[in-house]
Design a protein around this nucleic acid. Structure first.
Ligand SMILES: [Mn+2]
Ligand SMILES: [Mn+2]
Ligand SMILES: [Zn+2]
Ligand SMILES: [Zn+2]
Lengths: 149, 149
DNA sequence: ATTGCGCATGCAACCGGGTTGCATTTGCGG
DNA sequence: CCGCAAATGCAACCCGGTTGCATGCGCAAT
């Protein structure tokens, strides 16, 4: 669950206007998807999420361009994950999801919020600058465990 | 410059034998190049470095396979850099890398061993099956912090 | 020193994420 | 309502990385 305050349609439209940009359906939908997502999403994941929205599909290239534009506009962040694919996340810090760790199901791709708080960041040697710490817990959710009995 | 103690030919050969593996020219040359390199190297950079060695060229695919094999053998680290390209670096020999966490530089892709042990796995809700946990600490290494001018 | 097995290598084709060029559409200020 | 710059769609392309398969070679047993 994401706070409706920042992901509502008017909030998204005003966020786009605030940076002096055109409010287009693609931008609105992509930023909405980003803000509703539980974590950083890949291009493919966002594309699939948008495909289930009953609106006309957004072109592959347009999605890449909108995502990069959101980053240059300061509305999203872009970072390569451990596999080398770029993941995008809404720029506004999400206190909800930062306060706990997530479990990612390798079977269905689902992301589950756990009750446990993230572990404390370890002390870094002098000169290192910490940008962030991601605890990636992988496994299978109950449904997937049961399905391949 | 890297210490000659670990990058000398006999040291490389014994490091390969220590993991119970065949000592092949490709493995010796690639591990030697990694240990002689100042930082994490991409596949293309390693390929170019090897091309200037007057030995016969190593095939593109073979280089990919040797690099991945070195990682699974615990002799190298693999991490995506800021552009999403994988970079490889020699692992500190005679160290159990599962017993501590790693810092991944988002600037150069370098991987640094930290003193801290990995945090304990959180308790999972009933029905979940844990497959693995990766603690990804991201940031910039001293060299990249400084080059930010 | 020779043999034989199985891992390692080379080569070609392939894959997928990401980009580029260009014609067409569209948001929006005037 | 108009005009134009900006955004979109489409096709082709790029490049890092992978896969399938035939051949080469390290190495241990003889
Ligand atoms: Mn959450
Ligand atoms: Mn380590
Ligand atoms: Zn699942
Ligand atoms: Zn660095």
């Amino acid at each position: 669950m994401k706070s409706q305050a920042t992901s509502s349609l008017p909030a998204i439209q005003s966020a786009l206007r605030a940076v002096g940009a055109r409010v287009t359906p693609a931008r609105v939908r992509v930023l909405g998807a980003l803000r509703a997502a539980p974590g950083a999403q890949s291009h493919a994941e966002i594309e699939e999420a948008l495909a289930q929205e009953a609106h006309p599909a957004i072109d592959r290239v347009t999605l890449y361009r909108v995502l990069d534009w959101l980053c240059t506009a300061g509305l999203a962040h872009k970072a390569a994950d451990a596999r080398g694919v770029f993941r995008f996340s809404a720029a506004q810090p999400n206190v909800e999801h930062a306060a706990h760790v997530h479990f990612r199901c390798t079977g269905c791709g689902g992301v589950f919020c756990l009750k446990a708080p993230p572990p404390p960041a370890p002390k870094l040697p002098r000169g290192f600058r910490l940008a962030g710490m991601a605890v990636d817990i992988r496994g299978e959710c109950p449904r997937c465990v049961r399905s391949h009995s």
